[in-house]
Design a protein around this nucleic acid. Sequence first.
RNA 1: GGAGAGUUGCCGGAGUGGUCGAACGGGGCGGUCUCGAAAACCGUUGUACGCCUCGCGUACCCAGGGUUCGAAUCCCUGACUCUCCGCCA
Length: 420
Amino acid sequence: MIDIKYIRNSPDMLREAVKNKKEKADIDRILEIDELRRKLQYDFDNLRADQKKTSSEIPQLKKAGKDVSEVMERMKSLADELKSISTELSESGNELDSLLLTVPNIPAEGVPLGGEENNLQVRQWGEAKKFNFQTRDQVELAEINDLFDLKRAAKMSGSGFITYTGKGAALERALINFFLDFHIKKHNYEEISAPFIVNRETMTGTGQLPKLENDMYHIDQDDMFLIPTSEVSVTNFYAGEILPYSLLPKKFASYSPCFRREAGSYGKDNKGLQRVHQFNKVEMVRFVQPETSYDVLDEMVHDAEDILQALGLHYRVVVLATGDLSFASAKTFDLEVWAPGTGKYLEVSSVSNFLDFQARRANIRFRDNDGKVKYLHTLNGSGLATPRSFIALIETWQNEDGTITIPEALRPYLGNREIL
RNA sequence: GGAGAGUUGCCGGAGUGGUCGAACGGGGCGGUCUCGAAAACCGUUGUACGCCUCGCGUACCCAGGGUUCGAAUCCCUGACUCUCCGCCA
């Protein structure tokens, strides 16, 4: 959520942000409603002050044995007037609130303008591996090694679902444990495991709602949602709280399945494990003091990179252009890992700084050193998602005979075997 | 799923229609005392919005409605927590 005062003072900044992010928020209507609401609030406050003052005098008049019928008469009409103003006030308040929820975060300075095509590579690590034999892609490797079964998964759940089998299931579980342990031991994250089903308020807190309602699985009976990422539940862990200064900064690592309808994206890069409705992910979530958030953003990108490096996977780091940035994010880096069999870079991590945007929505504050209550900053990033890491790993570490060498860092999680 | 109890400020906990933003206790902070600390004593201690901005006004006692001139206090609906019973991984 963007501070209404900020919108009031710099509406052009917001018009610009809405345009660059290809959003539809109506800034002019917001300004209009805001002004109306404040006028009504002013009138209401004054009438209310009058009512309270007179009201407190009534018992005294009664005690003194005076006739209060005239005062009562006036109070009655005052009460009527107040009632109608308070109705208008709450109507305009509600409209303002729902309009404010449609305003996206403002892209940070220096973020490239334009759509996906303007995403900018900032660095890369390693290089595309050369093979002296004909490489196979994920699907071929999966068949040879019995790693996953898409047909049978579709039978149970439909297209876009996966069933990992045998060694594939073991490898996937190894990846999850490896990711979690890595962040906990090497980067000092605190492990957390929050619910996978959350309510509407929680989805609104991190900014998925109202915009992305159609992209999420919804449970009608209870009006609950399956989380698309554990960012949602973990960020809302502190919703509505004022955290003591000593608690910050807080860093969580969380494993969860992620559920995405991917409405409208059928046929787009969806071969094998590339784009699925349910996948596993280890997420990093941070609650930090405002002045540190951009440093923390860089740190988190490195935290995610460390994993790819430990697995010996070539990748590049890209800063997202305004049009590719998510609704709530001010600045996002994507990690794209090289998948030699598929012949593409695949997005395996997205690390974002939300500044105080989510904190305002979810009402997460902290008491600063000076005793003042302030909104904190939230960040999160994948570290990492398994399906595409899985693809890059098996394609990068494949051998001529179709077997897969396990990268050393992962061997402790797979019975210390060298070959999967 | 059934029955009951509860939800008040940083915490505990009063308050059942009228100067209640809220007694009292604890904690925190400041001060007196002390070489220093403890004890004791004194003071102070919520968030947000608005305006005629170092002051004043308003809102907030789980949430949303209602009754009333007036509600933390009465009524309705809902959420959550706890206890017991049932069911169950």
